[in-house]
């Protein structure tokens, strides 16, 4: 019997982790960048506290704008700021942006290639408040908008590098923002590059293609699979768009079977991209897609939801070693 914490608290923080972590990597990185980029500004819609942008506000109060509970306005204001020469980071919950303010991200931002960097908080199954707060389809929605770069960082190390890359690269970005105590999985030598996947481990039997913090779990699952005699490679794909087609095909060519893992619906995100890419290149092979089903999810702590809906390390391990490849 799995021990479950009977707690559904935590405003969109990832589950507590045993290993190393950093606090508020997004806001810390933004505040640091603000020192050398005087045109960097921050916008929130009454979610400063819960989006980790407060270190930036505290460092540069005159460059921070809280528009109240008005996500459409938050995006428009950011677009306006960008169009007079600023680089605007907007941070609130992903659901409120990708569902409520989509038209404004598409037209006021992306259509003009405006320097607006949207930080979508509480992505995927992270939020304990159920379907109203869980952005399960954000990657699918945002990658359908032309001229938007879409990124799902793995950990604190990568998130900080992504924030810097987005600040320094023109155009509209959608970045999944994990907040609070954010685990550190990747070591200091890791280098994020927009549009590039990274092979984190080589194997021979199965290749995992993963994005976001599912990569941390994929690495753990690969260890466990090795104990069971299955040799697993791991390809981390932080940039969902533009997708690293070449990187995927090179990796896939070395494995007879693939598993994809994402904190997102199984449809429309990484798993779909992988299958489309393999099929288009006539490199189709068995793929198990780990992700969420087409349903609204209940309230609950992240541990509980991960286990219940198959995003935990056990579920990935099972996919790697179990005999599920016949169908």
């Amino acid at each position: 019997m799995v021990e479950l914490k009977n707690r559904a608290g935590g405003m969109g923080e990832v589950a507590e982790v045993a290993g190393p972590y950093e606090v508020a990597p997004f806001g810390t990185a933004l505040a640091e960048l603000g020192k050398t980029m005087p045109h960097l500004v921050g916008v929130t819609a009454d979610m400063g506290r819960y989006s980790d942008i407060l270190p930036f506000r505290d460092a540069f109060p005159d460059r921070f704008f809280n528009v109240g509970m008005a996500e459409q306005d938050a995006i428009m204001v950011a677009a306006g700021l960008a169009k007079v020469g600023h680089v605007a980071f907007v941070a609130t919950y992903s659901v409120f942006l990708t569902r409520r303010a989509l038209d404004f991200m598409a037209i006021a931002c992306a259509h003009s290639k405006a320097d607006v960097k949207v930080m979508g908080g509480s992505p995927g199954l992270v939020n304990p408040y159920g379907g109203t707060h869980q952005a399960l389809e954000d990657l699918a929605v945002m990658r359908m908008i032309p001229d938007v770069t879409v990124i799902d960082p793995c950990d604190a190390t990568e998130l900080k590098q992504v924030v810097k890359a987005a600040a320094e690269t023109p155009g509209t970005f959608y970045i999944r923002n994990i907040r609070g105590k954010v685990p550190v999985t990747l070591d200091d030598s890791y280098r994020f590059e927009i549009g590039k996947s990274r092979v984190l481990r080589e194997g021979t039997d199965v290749g995992i293609v993963s994005t976001g913090f599912m990569t941390a779990r994929a690495l753990e699952a690969a260890d466990r699979a090795a104990e069971a005699g299955v040799s697993v490679g791991v390809l981390h794909v932080p940039t969902i768009k533009p997708f690293d087609t070449k990187g995927l095909l090179e990796f896939a060519s070395r494995y007879p079977r693939l598993v994809t893992a994402e904190n997102h619906l199984r449809a429309g995100g990484l798993g779909t991209l992988v299958v489309e890419t393999l099929f288009d290149a006539a490199e189709a092979r068995p793929v198990i897609r780990i992700g969420l089903r087409d349903r609204f999810h209940p309230c609950g702590s992240q541990d509980y939801l991960d286990r219940m809906f198959g995003l935990d390390t056990d579920s990935i391990t099972e996919a790697l070693v179990a005999d599920r490849w016949d169908h």
Partner: peptide
């Protein structure tokens, strides 16, 4: 879409 972008521009211009 216009007024909100006008707000952002006016804020940004004042800031500069």
């Amino acid at each position: 879409h216009g007024l909100g972008q006008g707000v952002g521009m006016a804020l940004g211009l004042r800031l500069k």
